[in-house]
Design a protein around this nucleic acid. Structure first.
Lengths: 155, 155
DNA sequence: CGAATACCCGATTATTTCAGTCGACTATTG
DNA sequence: CAATAGTCGACTGAAATAATCGGGTATTCG
């Protein structure tokens, strides 16, 4: 398991997508502008997200990306798994012969840690993130149809 | 929070140290050989571990490193904190103005994730790792000084 | 003493990953 | 056809990781 800004960008972008769920395709250009992430970098990330079936793409004008699954069917872990290639935390790739003939001493430790972290990340879905996000913007309901409308937040 | 092989090396090395706790100083050369970690790299890591008061050093022949604290007083998180400089997972460094004037949407997410991960890593002490490790070596051959008493594990 | 041991420390290097860029291409809409 | 917007691969700069090197200093022991 690797935790880097790469995964964070991906989650942020997916959250942006989720906040506009059901309103038709969302362009990367829009996400790029709103979340201040480089467009080309987003293209890379969404290539992976698409190949992992987390998003669907629509080409041509009016196109963009949409979530491929329900909000509560996508966890943060899913997203991170999609963009951060599988890097075995156990360093021996499950071969279990990492150190001489035995498993390296920390094999189980890292395996367990992985499980714990994924347990948490798997428990957090886009649906929850959306709920939390909309809750925070106390005024802030994004008006139907005006997806990118500027929202004046209080405090 | 960053999870990388750097922290893993550090934990592995500390575990090696812990397994020999109370038997006098352990040399980095020994750890290097047993755990297959570059000596010079270990020196870097142990410099940090020492500055964070996790280990004590003894110079000169017969010298080496010893744990500075009791086995159950050192958590995995302590070790990782010592070698992996504090990198705010929240990307805005707690400034909370990461995205335009607001907190970035995922601010709370990452902050919470950090807490969760540390909760787990803080809950795992060297003492537990040692116990688990000694348990695993059912036929436990530890020639040098007989660090771990023979434990017959079944499973 | 002086040689061997082993930690100490800074500078340097190589490799990898991250993050971003670029250019060309394809599919779709109007 | 032209504009939009995704698709793809290769490429680049910057940073972090992992490792190396070359000298130190403290300590022990013969």
């Amino acid at each position: 398991m690797r935790l880097t800004t790469k995964g964070r960008f991906a989650v942020t972008a997916m959250l942006d997508l989720a906040l506009r769920h059901g309103k038709g395709p969302v362009t990367l250009a829009g996400i790029s502008e709103r979340q201040d992430i480089s467009l080309s970098y987003l293209e890379q990330l969404f290539g992976k997200l698409r190949r992992h079936h987390l998003v669907d793409s629509v080409r041509g004008p009016g196109g963009g990306y949409t979530l491929a699954k329900a909000l509560d069917a996508v966890s943060v872990a899913d997203i991170i798994r999609a963009v951060d290639e599988p890097v075995d935390a156990t360093q021996c790739g499950g071969k279990e012969n990492c150190h001489e003939e035995h498993r390296c001493m920390t094999h189980d430790l890292w395996a367990n840690l992985n499980v714990k972290i994924y347990e948490y990340l798997d428990s957090v879905t886009l649906a929850e993130l959306v709920a939390k996000q909309q809750n925070k913007q106390n005024i802030a309901k994004v008006p139907e149809g005006r997806v990118g409308a500027k929202v004046v937040a209080t405090f």
